[in-house]
Design a binder for these strands. Structure first.
Length: 355
DNA sequence: ATGTTC
């Protein structure tokens, strides 16, 4: 009997490298179960993956960006007040949210340097609007409003999480009876906590920069890089979201819809976890050569959904192009086939801001 | 992923 489960469907392509990495995880000491979600792809350790362990934890599987995740906010701004060109112009005037004075509104000093900055890579802050509601009741319970402008923030613990990982990289895997096990988990929990706060501050800084008194309401916060102790086992989620904490946001790319899903009953099959996005299809290094001819400096900043992207790093925009990501509909379809989710709404990105 | 990094 294999301890590996892959949640996928015929149409959903998975790269062999990622499956090999998943097999590698399954062979580690203390591993009870390994799950590959439909957005599985290769990374330093596989992304879109869940590893359930006993008597051991593996900080390296989580990586440096401890607590990374997505916060979805209602901005308190009506969608008709959204002014695309004006906001694009304004956001073009700052490099990152570092240009906006950092304020730590909390009592404790922040361990995150430049609290309220988005960071690089696949991180972003994105304005979205409700595209379609499929489950009115669930949308109402979530306070998802058709007329509200929404903001999705994908960011993590910045350098702070990495500094924690650096202290616990040796040995590979920490046993429950070690001091390191307990101190890592305590520091990890701090990073998870601060990463969520970082997302909150990103939302606030962005809205105040655009001239609004932030009246954000957090609809959900879905972390996807962390360890959850659950009874006798430890659920490592690397690019995977808990299926037990309420509705989940699963974005595609900047050029596709975002799904809001409700949890189904049968989530034990996926180690109580769901996908965190569409998942990469192309390695970063391959993107530029594959789509260079299709775009110029302007057109790479627009999507087929007519949304816009503000980002000063053109290289990054190629690496994070919609083409570099798998089809979100196929990922959602795989989750539906395994009866892990119900779709309650879709959102449409209108403006993406990247550091 | 990363106050990257030569």
């Amino acid at each position: 009997m294999s301890n590996i489960k892959i949640i996928t469907s015929e149409k959903n392509w998975l790269e062999q490298t990622a499956i090999n990495q998943l097999n590698g995880l399954a062979a580690l000491p203390g591993i009870v179960k390994v799950v590959g979600l439909p957005d599985l792809h290769a990374g330093k350790s596989p992304v879109g993956a869940v590893a359930v362990t006993e008597r051991m934890i593996y900080p390296q599987l989580i990586g440096g960006d401890i607590g990374c995740g997505m916060g979805l906010y209602s901005t308190g701004i009506e969608r008709r007040k959204f002014k695309l060109e004006r906001w694009v112009t304004k956001l073009n005037n700052i490099r990152e949210l570092v240009d906006i004075p950092a304020v730590n509104p909390y009592e404790e000093p922040s361990p995150i340097y430049d609290l309220g900055t988005i960071g690089g890579g696949n991180h972003f802050a994105e304005f979205q609007m409700v595209e379609k509601m499929y489950d009115q009741e669930a949308c109402a319970a979530l306070a998802l409003d058709q007329d509200a402008l929404l903001l999705l923030v994908h960011s993590g613990s910045r350098g702070y999480g990495q500094s924690i990982l650096n202290k616990y990289s040796d040995p590979w895997g920490l046993r429950v009876d070690s001091d390191q096990f307990h101190s890592y988990l305590a520091e990890h929990n701090q990073a998870v906590f601060w990463a969520a706060r970082n997302r909150d501050i990103v939302a606030h800084k962005l809205l105040s920069y655009l001239g609004y008194t932030p009246q954000t309401k957090k609809l959900m916060d879905c972390k996807h890089n962390y360890i959850e102790p659950r009874g006798d086992v430890y659920i490592h989620r690397k690019g995977a979201v808990s299926a037990e904490l309420g509705p989940v946001v699963i974005p595609g790319s900047r050029g596709s819809l975002t799904y809001i899903v409700k949890l189904a009953e049968n989530t034990a099959a996926s180690a109580f976890s769901l996908s965190h996005g569409a998942g990469r299809k192309w390695a970063r290094s391959l993107c530029k050569s594959r789509i260079r001819e299709k775009y110029d400096r302007d057109s790479i900043r627009q999507t087929k959904l007519k949304s816009r992207v503000v980002c000063h790093d053109t290289e990054l925009l190629f690496q994070e192009a919609p083409e570099a990501y798998k089809n979100i509909d196929t990922v959602i379809d795989s989750l539906l086939q395994f009866e892990l989710i119900h779709v309650i709404a879709t959102l449409r990105p209108v403006l993406t801001y990247k550091g």
